[in-house]
Design a protein around this nucleic acid. Structure first.
Length: 110
DNA sequence: ACGTTGACTTATT
DNA sequence: AAATAAGCCAACG
């Protein structure tokens, strides 16, 4: 209980820090946390995002190709894309358009 | 308690 | 260039 700042908590915090209209990748977060290869844990942490007190914009986290791999974990597939488009991010064929333009890297932006 | 799975990524063949 | 292996670490059965 005292060690709430585990890998998961860090992932939640970073995800919540993603600016609106931008997105990041699992690898970028993992890299920022110092564990480059633990991108899976970032995704797994998102699975437990419901455990966090504050809402976690998991829809702003995609894989390194900009593909909405985790869209099935939302209420229904399509929600994730809709949320991204709602913030001005174009998504086509489950993939983010202009990846480099909207990419937000915590290691660089923070 | 051990083995498998998982919202991933990089390296090697 | 495409396919396969390995690495990550935690949760689930």
């Amino acid at each position: 209980m005292t060690d709430n700042y585990s890998f998961f908590e860090q992932v939640f915090l970073v995800a919540q820090l993603i600016p609106k209209g931008r997105f990041t990748t699992y690898g970028a977060i993992a890299n920022y946390l110092g564990s480059k290869g633990s991108a899976r844990m970032v995704g797994w942490a998102m699975n437990g995002s419901h455990s966090d007190t504050n809402p976690v914009p998991a829809h702003r986290v995609v894989n390194r190709n900009g593909v909405l791999t985790g869209k099935h974990h939302f209420g229904s597939p399509g929600i994730m894309q809709q949320l991204l488009e709602n913030e001005g991010i174009k998504v086509e064929n489950d993939q983010i358009v202009e990846f480099d333009k909207y990419f937000w890297d915590p290691a660089k932006e923070l």
